[in-house]
């Protein structure tokens, strides 16, 4: 997580500082900073998800003090890195489609090329990860009776590890196959639209693909949030990671009120700034932009 944090450092600073000194080396250094700030977290979030799917070696002590017993390098295992590749290519794909909407000329052509490459990569990596999970990956199953209304205590249950168990939810509710389906359909359509130079449609389709990819992992793991590979009983599920009733209620109302407001003003901000960013626009606003 610290790697993510240090990489994230470069983002706000990079955006603001890159034009502050008129030296190409300064600009290029901050652009590399922005590159790291964007790509490293995208990769690491995928790596984290890959580790969650496999289970993480940790347990709770009696006073519910969590103890991690693995190593740092253990987190960078092959499946986790594959998951990292899924998330990095997925986000680059989506970003490239957005860039196609906002630009023209050279930048547009490069964005289109990136979109086609990373879209293909994403679909390939996602497929391999899917086969891996289905054939060879241990999943987790709760074997005791669950009372979702009880006060959360992660140590009050028993959990077993079974190969292929991450597919149980799909087998039990076949309609859920639509979620990975959306990932594939969205990805393929987005590739097609990017190729056909329809960036808005490509952007929407790659958005659907993102929901599908993240949703697939969520459906597979439900109700687990963070399974423990060394002490399965300590695994965190949605039922024993919750806050108290009152806190949830407060947050429910806060989210219900503020999320639409945030979406509205963010949408308004995008609308205000909409339109192609052209060379001419950048030149006329050289000093006033920031």
């Amino acid at each position: 997580m610290l790697i993510v944090l240090w990489a994230l450092f470069f983002r706000p600073v990079g955006f603001d500082y890159r034009s502050k000194v008129a030296d190409p080396r300064w600009r290029s250094a901050w652009d590399w900073g922005l590159f790291i700030g964007g790509s490293v977290p995208a990769l690491i979030f995928g790596v984290a998800f890959g580790n969650l799917l496999q289970g993480v070696p940790f347990h709770f002590e009696d006073n519910l003090m969590p103890v991690y017993t693995g190593t740092f390098w253990g987190l960078l295992n092959p499946f986790a890195l594959l998951s990292g590749a899924v998330s990095l290519s997925m986000l680059t794909f989506h970003g490239a489609n957005y860039l196609m909407i906002r630009t023209e000329g050279d930048v547009y052509a490069r964005a289109r090329k990136a979109s086609l490459i990373f879209g293909t990569l994403m679909l390939a990596a996602f497929t391999i990860a899917g086969i891996w999970v289905a054939s060879d990956m241990p999943g987790y199953v709760i074997t005791s009776v669950v009372d979702p209304g009880a006060l959360p205590n992660p140590l009050d249950k028993t959990v077993e590890i079974q190969t292929g168990a991450w597919l149980d939810n799909f087998v039990r509710h076949p309609a859920l196959w639509a979620v990975p389906g959306a990932a594939f359909a969205g990805g393929l359509l987005a590739l097609l639209f990017a190729w056909a130079k329809k960036p808005v449609l490509a952007f929407i389709a790659s958005g659907v693909a993102e929901l599908g990819v993240i949703g697939t992992a969520g459906v597979a793991m439900f109700p687990f949030i963070m399974p423990s590979s060394s002490d399965p009983r300590s695994s965190l599920t949605v039922w024993d990671s919750v806050s108290s009733h009152l806190t949830l209620e407060v947050m429910f109302w806060a989210a219900l009120i503020f999320t639409p407001i945030v979406i509205t003003y963010t949408g308004w901000a995008y609308k205000m700034m909409a339109g192609k960013v052209t060379n001419a626009y950048i030149e006329t606003n050289d000093h006033s932009a920031y």
Binding site: V262, Y265, T266, A269, M273
Partner: peptide, 28 residues
């Protein structure tokens, strides 16, 4: 956690969205 989450939702999104418009929105 609750005040921190509400801070993000109510305040941080607000300031960080609008600071972008503050800098880039003078002509728009």
């Amino acid at each position: 956690g609750a005040p921190l989450a509400i801070e993000g939702l109510m305040a941080f999104f607000l300031e960080s969205t609008f600071i972008g418009l503050f800098f880039f929105g003078w002509n728009k």
